[in-house]
Design a protein around this nucleic acid. Structure first.
Length: 434
DNA sequence: TCTGGGGTCCTAGGACCC
DNA sequence: TCTGGGGTCCTAGGACCC
């Protein structure tokens, strides 16, 4: 196994991952739930998207629909929450801030995970360092984390998985040399390797490849041929050759999407227009938050794929905007025009969405305007109106100021088990009585 | 009755051009 | 029967991630 170097110094990567993150967030404010089975549900309270250890032990899989497991959930008195993303987002920044104070070079990889480059910690005991990280985050935020350390990001991921799954590790696993790495990979099923999903697992197992070590020992040419560049990269990473650098600056988004399942059948074009208008406006708002402009709009709508009786239809179309924009009114109008084209009478629509692509950071002044581009309000006026819109909604709550076509509830149907926004809403702040 | 939402990257294949 | 070759751009779909 080769180790990677940075400025001639051997470097190691850490992956810090929150345990059962959404469930842990709920538990911080309801300590009585520790040791009890808890799940967090998707929008519309449809699927299970986070499970406590106790629920995993019951054999309930990730993404399981609630209605299929009603009995199991009831007999085991599983506590259920609607998703509270305002709370999870805020708890995530607390965790990341604490981590950033401990380790200078981090990459926030997802809401509940971060990588760290440990090149400055060569003389430290990495196991002790990892324990300090685990304990400090727990103390400062209440969130339990696991820490995995290895010579590459993929090995850090693998180490983290073992730290979580095998209780002997107590949430900390360091693959400090070739011997410990080999031993770890032997105990890691190949489908747990980062970026080896269902499809590749099926093909690898057919070849008798069952563990990460089996995979790491395959010939590079074979892996390149069968699993393309992505597979080849993972393969090299598992063998200790770092191919994935730490990305401390988040690259700009390439697409922005807002979509929902309706939670009921939508038949009328007017209702669908209301939904698409709402989603398009939300996309435009996300776009402005990122400081980007969109060049393409896609609208899709489809009936229920699980419903074997009903007639299936899936409509989707992409259109180029006449000029790049971040204006809600432009984006909503174009989305509604696309909807007119794809809408078919007589279907029971179950889900729809809007996607913005062709994103650019350039403001319209820097972009050649379309020869037949829509004249009218200047870009300056448009930008000023959007700033005013965002300012009002920021201050008085999203949806205070909106287009007539938008729904006031954002097409959220059932959210019956929502916890309070303890950390982001004054009215919901927790009171401590002494 | 009731099955999430938001992303990225890669490849193959068609359209089109010279 | 036999039907150029190479390049680019775009899109759809697959695979994967959290």
């Amino acid at each position: 196994m080769k180790n990677t170097t940075r400025n001639g110094v051997v470097t190691m990567f850490a992956l810090i991952d929150c345990n059962n993150f959404y469930v842990s967030c709920e538990r911080v404010f309801k300590p009585a739930l520790h040791g009890k089975p808890v799940v967090v549900l998707s929008n519309n309270d449809g699927c299970i998207i986070a499970r406590s250890q106790e629920v995993k032990a019951l054999g309930l899989p990730m993404g399981a629909p609630v209605f299929k497991h009603k009995e199991l959930l009831e007999t085991n008195h599983v506590v259920m929450f609607s998703p509270n993303f305002a709370l999870y987002g805020d708890m995530s920044s607390r965790v990341m801030n604490t981590l950033g104070d401990l380790l200078p070079d981090i990459e926030i990889y997802s809401i509940d995970e971060a990588f760290a480059d440990l090149h400055g910690f060569g003389r430290f005991d990495l196991h002790e360092l990892a324990e300090t990280v685990r304990d400090t985050i727990r103390r400062h935020t209440g969130i339990p984390v696991s820490v995995g350390i290895g010579a590459t990001k993929t090995l850090a991921k693998a180490a983290n998985h073992l730290a979580k799954k095998q209780s002997g590790y107590q949430g900390v696993c360091v693959l400090k040399d070739a011997a410990s790495t080999c031993k770890a990979l032997q105990s890691l099923p190949v489908d747990e390797v980062w970026s080896i999903g269902r499809a590749y697992t099926r093909r690898l197992e057919a070849q008798g490849i069952h563990t990460a070590l089996d995979f790491a020992r395959l010939r590079p040419e074979w892996v390149r041929r069968q699993m393309h560049v992505t597979g080849a990269r993972v393969h090299r990473e598992l063998r200790g050759q770092s191919c994935l650098p730490l990305e401390q600056v988040r690259p700009p988004k390439k697409s922005i999407c807002t979509s929902r399942s309706f939670g009921r059948k939508v038949l009328q074009v007017g209702e669908l227009e209301n939904a698409i208008g709402t989603f398009a406006a939300k996309c435009a708002w996300k776009l402005r938050k990122e400081g980007l402009y969109a060049g393409l709009v896609t609208v899709f709508a489809h009936t229920d794929a699980f419903d074997k009786q009903g007639r299936y239809y899936r409509g989707s179309r992409t259109a180029a905007l006449p000029f790049v924009t971040q204006n809600t009114i432009d984006i909503v109008n174009h989305a509604l025009a696309i909807l007119k084209v794809i809408f078919r009478e007589g279907y029971a629509y179950q889900k729809a969405g809007v996607i913005l692509d062709g994103l650019t950071a350039a403001s319209p002044q820097c972009v050649t305007p379309s020869l037949f581009g829509e004249a009218g309000s200047s870009h300056d006026d448009s930008a000023a109106i959007m700033r005013a819109l965002d300012a009002v909604n920021e201050r008085y709550g999203s949806g205070t100021l909106r287009l007539a076509i938008e729904s006031s509830t954002g097409w959220k149907q059932r959210m019956e088990r929502l916890s309070p926004r303890y950390t982001t809403r004054w009215a919901d702040i927790i009171e401590v009585r002494g």
